[in-house]
Amino acid sequence: MSLRLGAMLPEVFRHLFKRPATVLYPFEKNTVPARLRGRPVMDPDKCIGCRMCERDCPAEAIEVTQESETRTDDGKVKRRFSMVVYVDRCAHCGQCEEICPAKPDKAIKLNEFFEEAAFDRGALKIVYK
C-alpha cells in the first residue's frame, strides 16, 4: 500500500456537517435497553422465603428475614418475609431474579433504574416489607 497524504481530510470535512455523536447527559438521556439489569426490587406478597437469592448473591447484598407466621382457618401456615437489599454492594448480575422459584411471578426483579449514586450510604440500604 502506498502512503497517501491527507487520507484523513475527506472524513474530517464531512464531520463539519454532522450532528454531535454524544448526548448531553444528565440533561438528555438515552432510553435504557429493555433487558437492563437495574435495581433489584422485591415483592413481599410473592416471596416464598426459600432464600435462594440470599444464598446465590455474589455480593452478599441480600438479606431475607421472616416477619410473621400466621395460621389460616384451614390449618395452612402462612409466612411473610421482608428483604434488605444493599444497593451499594449489588453487582447487578441478575442472579437473584434468575434463581427465584416463586410462581407464577418472580418475587424479585431487576427494574430499569440505573442512576445509583448517592451522598449517603444509608440511602442505598433498601428495605422491602
Partner: peptide
C-alpha cells in the same frame, strides 16, 4: 451488546450449561 445482554460492561451472559439470554 447492551441490547443482547442488558448492560454495556459485564454482560453476565454465560452460565454453567449455556447462556442466560
Amino acid at each position: 451488546l447492551e441490547m443482547v445482554s442488558g448492560n454495556r460492561v459485564n454482560y453476565g451472559m454465560q452460565t454453567f450449561g449455556g447462556v442466560r439470554r
